[in-house]
Design a protein around this nucleic acid. Sequence first.
DNA 1: TAGTAACGAAACGGAACGTTCCGTTATGGA
DNA 2: TCCATAACGGAACGTTCCGTTTCGTTACTA
Lengths: 200, 200
Amino acid sequence: MKAGKAATPVRRASIGARRNPASQAAILAAARAVLAEEGYAGFSIDAVSRRAGAGKPTIYRWWKNRADLLMEVYAAEKAGIRAVPSGDLAQDLIAHTSALWSFWCGTPSGRTFRALLAEAQSDPHALAALREKFLPERLQDVRGLFTAAAARGDIPAEEVEARLALYIGFNWFYVLTDQLEAGQASIPVAMRLIAARGGP
Amino acid sequence: MKAGKAATPVRRASIGARRNPASQAAILAAARAVLAEEGYAGFSIDAVSRRAGAGKPTIYRWWKNRADLLMEVYAAEKAGIRAVPSGDLAQDLIAHTSALWSFWCGTPSGRTFRALLAEAQSDPHALAALREKFLPERLQDVRGLFTAAAARGDIPAEEVEARLALYIGFNWFYVLTDQLEAGQASIPVAMRLIAARGGP
DNA sequence: TAGTAACGAAACGGAACGTTCCGTTATGGA
DNA sequence: TCCATAACGGAACGTTCCGTTTCGTTACTA
């Protein structure tokens, strides 16, 4: 058996004068598989095309570039990590971070996310999409934790942005250096600092 | 005049059976210029080779790959940002961060650093070099700020790693999203949180 | 003086990009 | 019922870049 051959070498013929959702699904699954097995280094449109048994034009019919495809691969996996404020910001942040890191380690999503950040460094359009669409959507929940804490008076409202930046950066540092496993002990300490009350 | 033509189209002939330091310097300067003008997207060995008037084998004679060259470009610029603990961790961090962001904005180094992080996402060797050599060297000073604060008893010694991670990530988030200009207001707030005393 | 090795230039094979053709397929409007 | 339409997979396009090899030239070094 050839290494890397998918369980779905099925080709999909045309279904007429409209796009075939089965092709979109097959391409997404193939992209996910390639990222899981090869990482960003092995992620190419050609590789995804071969793996999916799909033509490259079909890929570009659904997504306008690599970054676009990567974002949808990530979004398709980002399952049920919801964050509902409990009244204790530090505990909420610890729980959410643990869940996020498990998600990043237990699925191809950590690699997908790293690929996404890398892609944004060479493609200005990808960076804009990351900043203006992807991140706001993905950070909606965790931002809610901070605004809820500010509404309770636990943290100053004008410090939400800085604390959110601390939170995001903390996660990025560990995922980008591939140190999620070793860094778990830092989570509670860091989250308590981010969630610290303002005044003395 | 052609856009992007350097001020040094000088070719350097052989100086005998030994490597010519002038070639190394010209290549570094060309790499810096390409990164400044084109960013990571336009940074290729071919582009640097053309710009420097040097052959590609000469580049690979001095550096073993792109990441290696990028790291030296960064190191060659990282001039005199020294951090000496003053006795107030928060103030030290604020001062150091302001200097770092000015350095990243006022030179090609911000772009170089982004390129370096991107490169490390697709090249395992680059990631290892980043983690085990580049970062420890670059972070020596700022780590010293934290250990000095711990020695004074201002922060717990066992929290140095987590606080350092918060610090690094904070900077990475703003540089990777190209938001250094807009994010300056967050610096004092974030640094005070990172430097907060432990106990109540 | 003969040997050696770096120099710039050019070309290599391989991979990937994003696009363009091709013949096939099946829908949906006339 | 028929036919224009458009997506399908596949192949090939031209371009760019990688890292390496080959070449004639240059000038130290032993």
